[in-house]
Design a protein around this nucleic acid. Sequence first.
RNA 1: GCCCUCGUGGUGAAAUUGGUAGACACAAAGGACUUAAAAUCCUUGCCCUUUUGGGAGUGCCAGUUCGAGUCUGGCCGAGGGCACCA
Length: 847
Amino acid sequence: MERYNFKEIEEKWQKHWDENNVFKTKIDKNKEKFYCLEMFPYPSGKIHMGHVRNYTIGDVLSRYKSLQGFNVLHPMGWDAFGMPAENAARENKLDPKDWTNANIITMKNQLKKLGLSIDWDREISTCNKDYYKHQQTFFLELLEKGLVYRKENYVNWDPIDETVLANEQVIDGKGWRSGAAVERKKLSQWFFDISKFSEDLLNGLDGLDNWPNKVKTMQKNWIGKSFGCEIDFKINGDLPVKKIKCFTTRPDTLFGFSFLALSVDHEISKYYEKDENFIKFKEECSKTGTTEEAIAVGDKIGFKTNLLAINPLNSKEKVPIYFANFVLMDYGFGAVFGCPAHDQRDFDFAKKYNLEIKTVVKPHDKSDTFKVKNEAFSGSGIIINSDFLNGLEAPENSITETIKILEKKKIGKKKINYRLKDWGVSRQRYWGCPIPVAYDKEGKVHPIPKSMLPVTLPENINLNVKGNPLDSQNNWKEIDINGKKMVRETDTLDTFVCSSWYYLRFCSPKEGDYGFNIDDIDYWMPVDQYIGGVEHAILHLLYSRFFMRAINYKNKNFNIKEPFQSLFTQGMVCHETYKDENDKWLSPEDVEKIDGKYFQKGNSKKIVKVGPSESMSKSKKNVIDPEYIIENYGADAVRLFILSDSPPEKDVQWSEQGMISSYKFIQKLWTLHNEIKKKLSNEPMEIFDNEIDEFTNQTILKITNNLDKFNYNVIIANMYETYNYFNNTIKKKNKLNNLKENYKKILICFTPVIPHFSNHCLDDLDFTNDLIWPAYNKKALIKDEINFVIQINGKKRALIKTKKDISEESLLKVIKLDKNINRYLSNYKIKKVIFVKNRLINILIHE
RNA sequence: GCCCUCGUGGUGAAAUUGGUAGACACAAAGGACUUAAAAUCCUUGCCCUUUUGGGAGUGCCAGUUCGAGUCUGGCCGAGGGCACCA
């Protein structure tokens, strides 16, 4: 027997799949479709283990669904616009396009070596003008529908990447890519009106039964719906403004009102612009505002105005108005009514400035003289000290009642507020999709006529400039529209716009007139299974849900709202981290383990400090190169290992030992295959063995269920069990009549995980027909004999083999023959017997 | 502070959804083969007993049940998300 030559065999099959267009997909209305999609990669250079895991999971599912007879769409493309290309190009004096395309070629080859069942005919790249042309059309359509607008606003400015970031791209006050502390800057920007769909995006979550709850909760929190009331406060003072609007969720505590706080950006601030003390105060606010921790721990500070606000429920009561650092301009109306007794933040502020703390809610178990002392009370209770509101149950009842009263008095009205803000999509970068608009001399916006699309990026330009390289491209910027001279928009679109609709493009990758063809969409969409990292829980997944609604808006021909029917978020691939004596990161390649201790390779004097296992990342050097692993162990072995150790939704530890054992497992399977082959050709097959049928059926049932439930790690265990069983059985038994058909079924079940090996073995035995997912035979699943569990007082005392469907009476007779059981039964009286058919008997005795 | 998820051997983890806890694998120890090593194979895995067997046992404490890793309540611990959101 030859050793299993994975290199030769894997290459052979990959070539076969390629040359025969095995994974090419066409619409076939006689077949049920299955659209399996993994989040497409950014072409950063080489694939990493995270990709291997993500795409292996998707490939197992695709191959399984194909074998089940589905018409499977399993495409791949490139999220090809973005900063790294621009940075790399600047450093190496290259064109971002060349850098990107070279990476795409490398990574495509690497993905092919993994043996993925991808329809490469549908490959798309978002930096290709055939792609972004349609994105520009979408942009203009949204502009026409009023879903895109331009406004001057405070934005998140990333000083390292020198671009604006969306709220979703600021994590803990830092840029999601650069890690730089984000600054506030006022700029004119393009926005997508995502907040228009806040309610719909929230409601849509309820229908996403096959999404992880975690992701749904995150989106729900991000949308941040809250019920409340808007209230107009009259103000006393020497300003032309006589009214300030506030949003509150607790109008029922209005009698506890003791100050009104405004954002420093509130419109009233314009009357204080020349006040030196106010300018100083505003500066102080912007300083503390940069990091999240500063905000969380930070002091509440205020600037007292000479204005007074009048309590709308008691016009005699007048309270001071402050500007305060904790009031956000872009939530509510940038103004807060302060009730220190029942809001901790207001309480802190009141303590600092010695403001009145009026208790208006008491806990149920306290008397009417209850007074808030050391901290605000926000629990449930009864309204007190509030005139006609007294006695109401707080909070639910008192809030609705108060709103009714306020509405009657025309002081306020019911209001629902959302935390979700519009999506700022302007980026001051070169390597992105140009925004297809221009400005005339007056600065008025003109869409680029659709006939002039695409607006392509200028090529071979100097990237070594400060700010946006497109700004200095005068030839490119100047444009004639209908004889009028105009200047192009130089901002490009956030790359998350590209990924908001790419799954539609895969359905019609070559459609020239529009982004997609409606017939294709009708057949393929929605994505039946989407697979990717949880880091996009809010970003990409929310944007995509918005984008479908935006296309759908005022569009009778397009009915998709939810692009992803089911979502699966896989865990990360982790590895131990290593540092040398100077705390410099070391790569696993440079580390050697001798007798349980770690040293630098080739130098057993240099001790290596071992850190915790963390998600593989270039910066910590704890990466394993998939190409090296595939080269040395083969794609099947890598696929097997990456699935074997942990459930796919959890993080997995990379283990060299585990990898080797997966490799050895393939070799063992090969040895087994050859022994089975020898038996099949040498021995007359005359003995029909029930047990092997039963085992195979059990295995088919287990693997099928585990595939359906994404228990891919358990499938690997099932594969090991199968090997162990077959290996033992063929050693013990000869001339098995039903070995052949069972082995064939098993090989088919192995195909999704180890496609090269399984196809090779199937081919080797001329099993080339009817390669379909085996159905389990329910009759064969019912065993003739059952291991019956015998319990005495709920404790297992014996395991007895009996015929199936044995009755309670006969079982009791049988178990009396068991020495151990009889010891209990003959010495004690039976109180009660619990009998579970074909499974368990529990005998309760007096002791 | 608020919300969510999760606690099972030395390790990664299984457990047909309330019915044999620890499948499958990694690591470890012992053994077989070998001059030796590698590779391969076998055995072991908490406590008591020579064995048959018995006891404890799924973070901790209670509860429901004939029976709880699984259900209920409380506590402890870990991870994640949001965070001056009015």
